[in-house]
Design a protein around this nucleic acid. Structure first.
Lengths: 220, 220, 220, 220
DNA sequence: CATGAATGAGGATTCATTCAT
DNA sequence: CATGAATGAATCCTCATTCAT
């Protein structure tokens, strides 16, 4: 299982050193239960029971239940958006621009696909909590506005200038791109995870659709 | 405000006669608070306070807190999907097929846009609760599978046969259509309601994008 | 059914004129439910439902739930003890003393047997409420001490003087008599009502046992 | 006070190890209040207050209020009937049969007298709750039918065959014995605890009465 | 560090009682 | 008289949090 992995990854953002085994158990149990029943409907005693620790132990590591939530969600938001605004990722695209927008799209799409595939429960938690906790909303929007948006915007404008993309407002292009990527992943992993999916084909179909929908009009 | 209106509409689905004033106040308060803080984090005493009634009054009308939730969500799910599977709506489209797929799309899109504009809080509640309450999930999926899917599928296949739509699996077409419509509405009304939006233009841009992305390849 | 009868009887003690039909329904429902579940575990709304009246109607007739209980229990306590201290009943016995103590005992026993047979639910209510409500206890003890005890004591002493009864303290004789009569009736109607009972034989056996146990020692 | 004693005894039936002090306080308070006001009329907050613990503490030890009741009543029912069906108790009687039925009766009577004297409040609780809780009724009847009845029946038949007891149906003999023992104890400890009682004399009088009432007819 | 008993504020729900219709 | 919607205090119970061991 790769469960242990992402829990370790989370910690690394946490600043601290290493996770104790008990801490890892707590985090894992919390992630599972928050995803299953939601934050508000999950009690710390349930988490303790599933984690196999005493209830008090949770509060030794996380001052409050909310802090436990944050310690899960915060690094995850970063992880989720991280690669998209990694400087080298964008720079690569712009440099090797002969590869075209489609390669960028495919690269980003597949990358996020793999990520969500490994971390579906997190996605559910993030969606739920960003919906209700204004603080989370703020953090999310800040991240989006300051990091993701400028990077992607740069890419979009670049390819619009190259004539590969239709002359639609970049914000709209970005909204469309995100909507379709996130929408596909949500449908795939949260809404209808039990249906038969041919993931590769569906991704390629979505990319093809996006490329066609965003290509410049022939007269342009 | 048109709040009073939709609350009355909800009841009509409820089978019963008319809402008492107190009942309407309770529903309105509940909708607001569930949308703000989520079902689990909203206490019945808070609802009572905002509704200006005694806490006991809530339980005179709704045996449990969950029943109160259902009495809000159930009719809403129906309302939300209703027009899309109204027989005459689909039939109209198929008969007046000279109008083309674009008209169908525009009609459906604008119709749902208006609906969500009036009922944004409901949308938030539905999304939240469908995510966690398996019963709601079931109800939602049933509605989708039995009513919405066949109707829309008929339309899609019709236009594919007419050569107006690309030869992509109808399920994928539908997923793409829903993703883009719902995604746009969510972004507009829930995620970034405070940003400047030129709704008409954004809808038209989305439609244009969808039409282009779904049109048959030139060689076909 | 004779249900209607005893309810009317109850009222006559109540001082008032006649019971309205609704009032009778309320009393009957209350008696049934108090006997089934106990006073404290029966809600006025349940009583109203079973009686087929509105909850408010109960409070139109009985200021409080407790008053409703009293209006059932009070007259019943009187009814229960009544014949035993009816002057003429005792006087008869003393006059026709040729009939002996056994006839008195048989008469009293069968009389109470018939009464309990018709009114078993009441018995349960009385036992329960006398056990807990100090006020009821007081009323019950007063009745016993002032009315029943002197009468029966007179009878017992009379037959002791005649040499028909052993020279045991009259209080003990009375305790034994009551214990055996009440004990038999409780076993018969409350504790094991479902077992096969040959009531006539069991009563006669009990009487024979009592007579033998209370007869003077042969040497006396 | 010997309160501490019986509470410890209760637990030993409970299977578990030892009672925490708080748990003992809770049990003691609950016993007192249930006996005073009845189960249904006693609130958990009152119990907590009298026990000197937080209300939540009650629910840490007993999942529900009813479980608290059962944890008191169940072992008590067993305790109450225990010695009567202890194998050696019965066997002793049958072996040393020269001692006669009167010794058996005296032994049993005094044993239960001492027990009730120490545990009067329990008796009240048992009577109340067996009256209303069908589950308790079942448990009680099962215990009686499977354990107590056969043992005592064996003794009764033994002494009937020896000609020490009248030829009355054993069930009736047992009913009479129980009625008189229980009736005396109830009168003594619950109904008229405040009256002057010369317990030894009253017990002996009752035994004498029983022996005489149950002796075979002289002609037999 | 880890525990789990103890806490008490707060949760949903019930209920006797009132009162306008 | 009868109704039943409305009330709010009280009920049983849950839960995040603390703290002595």
């Amino acid at each position: 299982m790769s469960d242990k992995n992402w829990i370790q990854e989370i910690l690394q953002e946490d600043g601290e050193g290493q996770l104790t085994p008990k801490q890892a158990q707590i985090l894992q149990a919390a992630v599972e239960m928050f995803a299953e029943k939601g934050y508000a409907s999950t009690s710390t005693s349930e988490i303790a029971k599933r984690a196999g620790v005493a209830e008090g132990t949770i509060f030794r590591h996380y001052k409050t239940k909310k802090e436990l939530l944050y310690s899960i969600v915060s690094p995850m938001i970063v992880q989720f958006a991280a690669p998209l605004f990694a400087r080298h990722f964008i720079d690569d695209v712009l440099e090797r621009d002969h590869e075209g927008f489609e390669d960028f799209l495919r690269h980003a799409f597949r990358n996020r696909y793999n990520f969500v595939k490994e971390n579906a429960p997190f996605l559910k938690i993030i969606i739920q909590e960003v919906a209700f906790q204004p603080e989370m909303q703020q953090r999310f929007k800040a991240l989006f506005a300051e990091k993701l948006l400028p990077s992607v915007q740069k890419v979009v404008i670049h390819f619009q200038e190259k004539g590969e993309l239709a002359d639609i407002p970049p914000e709209t292009v970005i909204r469309i791109l995100l909507t379709n990527i996130v929408g596909m992943l949500l449908t795939r992993f949260l809404i209808m995870p039990d249906q038969d999916w041919n993931d590769d084909e569906e991704i390629e179909r979505t990319i093809a659709f996006l490329m066609k929908g965003l290509q410049p009009s022939s007269s342009e």
